[in-house]
Simulated assay, not measured.
Amino acid sequence: MSGPASRVPGAGSLPPELRGGVVAIGNFDGVHRGHQAVIETLSTLADREGAPRLVLTFEPHPRTVFRPQHPVQRLTPAPLKARLFGHLGVDAVVEQRFDMDFAAHPAEAFVADTLHRDLGARHLVVGYDFRFGARRQGDVDFLRARGAELGMAVTCIAPFVDEGANTVSSSRIREDLMNADVAAAAALLGYRWTIEGTIGHGAKLGRTLGYPTANMVLPDDGLLAHGIYAVRLRRADGTLHDGVASYGRRPTFDNGAALFETFLFDFAGDLYGEAVSVSLFGFIRGEERFDSVEALVRRMDLDSAEARALLAGARPLSPLDAAVAF
């Protein structure tokens, strides 16, 4: 399994050996199949030109900066995004700090300063609807014209559509996850949606039920539907463990803050404080309140059996899925 792409904190911090690269520009939240098509073009151009493969993205997400009262629900936080890009062969992800000052830069400054001076880009790869600069005054035509003057070629990528001829987008994937349709989300992503976090201490109710769990707090409680999922957990050492996870507020007990609680099959270790990733393979049922602990445990036994069966038949959706979840 390949490692993550290097993370560079801004275009002005790019190491000299990475200058002169082919640069894909965008937010790339989810690194979905459309984004992967962009990276495939990036890789082809970089191989042809013998140049580094770079991605220029923006942190935090520009829409969150412009509308802080409605922050973007992130599919892939920056560290996970860098890991996914690394699996796709990207050398480095330039995480350009995005704030209101940067947003006020005119389009000319973005091209001349960020792309040409700081990155030394030789070829740019952008989407068909790419806009940039203050008041979104820059577009692909502007980029082509100014890039030609500065020695930067531009390749524009058409929208990527799925088998139903619908454009693949991060917003569609968010909607699928909110509706607990992790299979549909995986079809758009090209890999099983994955979360990362550090295992913390919970109320340890699972231990008393014979189902000790590894607990994580998700950064955004509104993105994934509460319920029971078949999952695969990857430890820091790369080992994989199948399991069943409950995401929600434990209505049978305390109805408290939302937790992602994973019970690992055939595992008897201590994961406290360990950074892990968890890939979602299937949705089993919604969150329920049970009249008794005994009824809950009976249902958990059924959930575990269903998750085992689902995971036993799972196969990689793509090379990226194989790297992430297998």
Rank of each mutant, 00 (worst) to 15 (best):
P62A: 06
V65H: 06
D321C: 15
D139E: 01
P16W: 05
V90G: 05
P316E: 01
L224N: 08
R250K: 13
E95P: 00
G164I: 00
S292V: 04
L205H: 08
S304T: 11
P319V: 02
L264K: 13
R136A: 14
G206C: 04
E40I: 00
D129V: 06
L14I: 12
Q73T: 13
V154A: 03
R146Y: 01
L317N: 02
S169R: 12
R67G: 01
S277P: 07
V140L: 08
A78L: 13
G30I: 00
Y247R: 09
L209Q: 05
A78W: 03
R67L: 10
G86V: 11
P4N: 10
A322D: 15
S6V: 05
F110Q: 04
L18Y: 14
L320R: 03
G206A: 08
F85Q: 02
R83K: 15
A5G: 05
S246M: 10
E17G: 01
S246P: 06
P9V: 10
V231P: 07
M1A: 13
L42P: 11
L177K: 11
L115G: 03
V55E: 11
Q69D: 15
F85M: 12
H201I: 08
R117H: 12
A236C: 13
Q69T: 04
H241L: 14
T239M: 12
V324T: 08
L88E: 05
D141G: 03
I228C: 10
R232S: 05
R174H: 07
P4I: 09
I195M: 08
V154Q: 08
M152F: 03
A214T: 11
A323W: 09
R7I: 13
R234M: 12
G190N: 00
V140H: 01
T239E: 15
D303W: 08
V23A: 10
A325K: 04
V23Q: 09
M152S: 01
G190D: 01
V8E: 06
V182A: 02
A245C: 14
A214G: 07
V22L: 14
R63A: 15
F160P: 00
P319F: 02
G238S: 14
Y229H: 12
R131T: 12
A312T: 05
A165N: 12
P79Y: 08
G26L: 03
H87L: 10
D291P: 03
A275S: 14
R315D: 05
R174Y: 03
R97K: 07
P71C: 02
P52H: 07
E49S: 11
L223Y: 09
I228P: 14
M216V: 12
R289K: 15
R144H: 07
S43K: 09
K204E: 13
P212S: 13
F326E: 01
T76R: 07
I199Y: 08
T41K: 13
S292F: 01
V217R: 14
G200E: 15
T44S: 15
E149H: 04
R48N: 09
G50K: 05
E274N: 11
A134N: 06
Q96H: 03
R192P: 00
F142Y: 11
T239W: 05
I199N: 08
A230I: 10
R136G: 01
A275W: 05
T239D: 14
A268M: 06
Y272K: 09
Q137N: 00
E261Y: 09
F263P: 01
V55R: 14
F28S: 06
L42Y: 11
G164T: 10
R234V: 10
V182K: 11
A295T: 09
A153L: 09
